[in-house]
Simulated assay, not measured.
Amino acid sequence: MAEAAVGRVALMSIHPAYARAILEGRKTIEFRKRRLAADITHVVIYSTAPDQAVVGYFTVNGQETSSPASLWRDFRDQGVISEDDFFAYYAGRSQATGIKVGEATRLRNVLPLSDIGVSRPPQSFQYLPRDRFAKVLAAV
Rank of each mutant, 00 (worst) to 15 (best):
A2N: 12
A2D: 14
A5C: 07
G7Y: 11
G7S: 11
R8W: 01
V9C: 05
V9K: 06
V9L: 05
L11Q: 04
L11Y: 07
L11P: 03
M12C: 13
I14C: 02
I14M: 04
I14W: 05
P16K: 08
P16L: 08
P16I: 02
A17P: 03
A19C: 05
A21V: 02
I22T: 00
G25T: 04
K27Q: 09
I29G: 04
I29M: 12
E30V: 10
E30T: 09
K33P: 03
D39Y: 12
I40Y: 00
I40F: 07
Y46T: 02
Y46Q: 01
P50S: 07
Q52G: 08
Q52W: 09
A53H: 00
A53Q: 09
V55K: 05
G56Y: 02
Y57Q: 01
E64A: 15
S66M: 14
S66T: 13
P68N: 04
A69N: 12
A69F: 12
A69S: 14
S70V: 14
L71S: 06
W72D: 08
W72K: 02
W72G: 08
D74M: 14
F75Q: 01
D77W: 12
Q78H: 14
V80K: 12
I81A: 10
S82P: 05
E83C: 12
D84Q: 15
D84I: 12
D85W: 10
F86L: 05
Y89C: 02
Y89I: 05
Y89S: 07
Y90F: 15
Y90W: 13
A91S: 14
A91M: 08
G92N: 10
S94F: 11
Q95I: 10
A96Q: 00
A96I: 06
G98W: 08
G98E: 03
I99M: 00
I99S: 02
E103M: 13
E103S: 15
T105Y: 13
T105H: 14
R106L: 11
L107Y: 03
L107D: 06
R108H: 15
S114K: 13
R120A: 14
P122G: 06
Q123I: 11
S124G: 09
F125W: 08
F125Q: 05
Q126M: 15
Q126C: 11
L128S: 05
R130V: 15
R130N: 14
D131V: 13
D131K: 13
R132W: 00
F133W: 07
F133Y: 10
F133M: 04
V136D: 01
V136Y: 06
L137P: 07
A139Y: 08
A139H: 10
A139I: 05
V140F: 00
V140P: 00
V140Y: 00
